[in-house]
């Protein structure tokens, strides 16, 4: 059933959000600490568990993957409601602080990516997966 996939996703999201709030208040922070991340880990665990038990039906998969595929349109909607005007208009302090913070972080990403052995790229991973089994099928966005 498709709804069981949607419900599984909803339960993981709610549980993650709850645990994130709990963790936040335990640490004395007025924020959700890693709620989405906890929910993602729960969903990964649920997927592994369901697959092992042979309960991963096409319906369950579809119910979750549908929302994953809607992700980019949702991000576009999110971009359309940012307060871009204030960000663009506010003074040089904001410009300088924003630009330098982003540049330093980009540079650090580049640095860390070069340290250690180079990871396999997404294309290589998918090519390997395709060689092993039937193609997973690219989600249509």
């Amino acid at each position: 059933m498709t709804i069981s996939g949607v419900a599984l996703l909803a339960i993981c999201t709610l549980l993650g959000s709850f645990l994130g709030d709990l963790l936040g208040s335990a640490l004395g922070v007025k924020a959700n600490v890693g709620g989405v991340g906890i929910a993602m880990l729960l969903l990964i665990a649920a997927r592994l568990w369901l697959t092992r038990r042979g309960l991963m039906t096409a319906g369950v998969k579809f119910g979750v993957e549908f929302w994953g595929a809607l992700y980019i349109p949702i991000v576009v909607a999110m971009a359309a409601q940012q307060n871009v005007l204030v960000a663009a208009r506010s003074g040089p302090l904001v410009l300088i602080a924003g630009i330098s913070a982003v540049l330093i972080c980009f540079a650090t990403v580049a640095l860390i990516s070069r340290i250690g052995k180079k990871g396999e790229t997404m294309d290589e991973i998918e090519a390997k997966a395709r060689a092993q089994a039937s193609p997973p099928g690219e989600p249509v966005v």
Binding site: L9, A10, C12, T13, G16, S17, G35, V36, A39, M40, L41, L43, I44, R47, K61, V64, E65, F66, W67, G68, L70, Y71, I74
Partner: peptide, 9 residues
Amino acid sequence: DFAIVATAF
């Protein structure tokens, strides 16, 4: 958040 969690699949 709902959609981000879904991508974890």
